[in-house]
């Protein structure tokens, strides 16, 4: 019950996802689409589970007045600040939740966090990219060329610089990404088959 049924469920869902590609028969497609829809619904529940877990852990800390409980309280308040109007008013365009709350809180916070990463990437790179080998030099040099080529005055440094940067992005960079993608695809296919066939069971836990 504890291990066999989950392995059987994985097998059924996994096999149907693969079979629908090779046998495009309406009957097979119907079952596969139905199973896929079930999975989408379960995934939606898993998001709610994740949020419930965040609330449980932070709520407990607030209740016990644990370390940093005031910050956790901010988190819990922010959660309900979004959920309560979101559930009653909706979250689509034109709603108060989207146009006021989401646009003026989540979007500036998220984009500023991503933007401030520029500084951390730069400082991390300064420490990590110490030019010890010639290959590290290649990495650092490529990064500098790409950055110079992306600034508005790049053509004033050298008229062909933007074109060279485009070539670097579209040729050697694409070759490296292609190699990584092919390797990752082979790994994902092998892992996927191992999971479906029940060889890889680590997702079931220890018991």
């Amino acid at each position: 019950m504890k291990r066999e049924i989950p392995i059987l469920i994985t097998l059924i869902f996994g096999v149907f996802m693969i079979v629908q590609f090779f046998i495009p028969h309406p009957a097979v497609n119907d079952i596969a689409n139905r199973l896929q829809n079930w999975a989408i619904i379960v995934i939606a529940f898993s998001y709610v589970l994740g949020s419930a877990n965040i609330l449980r852990i932070n709520g407990e800390l607030v209740y016990r007045r644990g370390p940093g409980w005031l910050y956790k309280l901010v988190l819990v308040i922010a959660f309900f600040m979004m959920v309560i109007p979101g559930m009653f008013l909706g979250i689509g365009e034109g709603t108060w939740t989207n146009d006021r709350l989401f646009t003026n809180t989540y979007i500036p916070l998220a984009s500023t966090m991503y933007a401030s990463l520029a500084f951390f990437i730069a400082s991390a790179a300064f420490r990590a990219f110490r030019v010890r080998t010639w290959q590290a030099s290649v990495l650092a040099l490529t990064a500098v060329i790409v950055m110079l080529g992306r600034i508005p005055i790049s053509h004033m440094i050298w008229h062909d610089l933007p074109n060279v940067v485009d070539w670097v992005m579209n040729v050697p960079n694409a070759v490296a990404q292609r190699g990584i993608l092919i390797g990752a695809a082979l790994g994902a296919i092998a892992t996927g088959l191992k999971v479906i066939l029940g060889i890889e069971r680590s997702y079931l836990g220890r018991e």
Binding site: A78, M81, M82, V83, I91, Y106, L109
Partner: peptide, 19 residues
Amino acid sequence: HFFVGIAAGYVVCAEFYNV
């Protein structure tokens, strides 16, 4: 913390309305 709370709340609402 405000960001995490708002993001978690938005995910719940989005899954509710979209799925």
